[in-house]
Amino acid sequence: MSRRVLVVAFDDEHRLLAALRHARATPHEVLDVHAPYPVHGLPELLGERPSRLPWACLAGGLAGLGLGWALQVWTSVHDWPLNVGGKPHDSAPAFVPVAFELTILLAGLGVVAAFFLAERRRSPAPAAACAVRATDDRFVVSIGARDATFDGPALARRFREEFGACEVEEILVEDAT
């Protein structure tokens, strides 16, 4: 099954936001917005939930801390206890730097890994010609037809005239589901 998608491009983030507010008021679904840089207020407008990436970061960090400390204590106290400079086998203060660095390392790698995993499920850029410039200077809204009232040309005109869209295109998208 395929559906019709209206791809509207703006050359200014303010016009985009105004148009987006309008689009949200229509029954049509705002599928995604593509922009050359993160536009402030956009996620709120799209009703995004707060990201869960910080939790991944925390988990990575805790894993790093735990593993780092465990590695040091296990190797230095249990597996191969040696008299090094007369210091106790469990030289806790000396274990802080490595544990700290491992905390940071795994936290950082954890959050990036989570980011990449999350990004695997994101919606791709619409195949419209104008959308290609979303990585350059265009702010592109994709509006998907939800019901029969979807009137592409009318909407396009509206965006063009009322919200200053610089380009509007209607495409057919094969639905994955």
Partner: peptide
């Protein structure tokens, strides 16, 4: 990596950047 500039991606990207900066 297939970056499209999606608003959701940007949001995650900002979060990751902020977290990495914090680290």
């Amino acid at each position: 990596l297939g970056w499209s500039g999606s608003a959701r991606s940007w949001k995650r990207h900002e979060t990751v950047s902020l977290l990495l900066a914090g680290l």
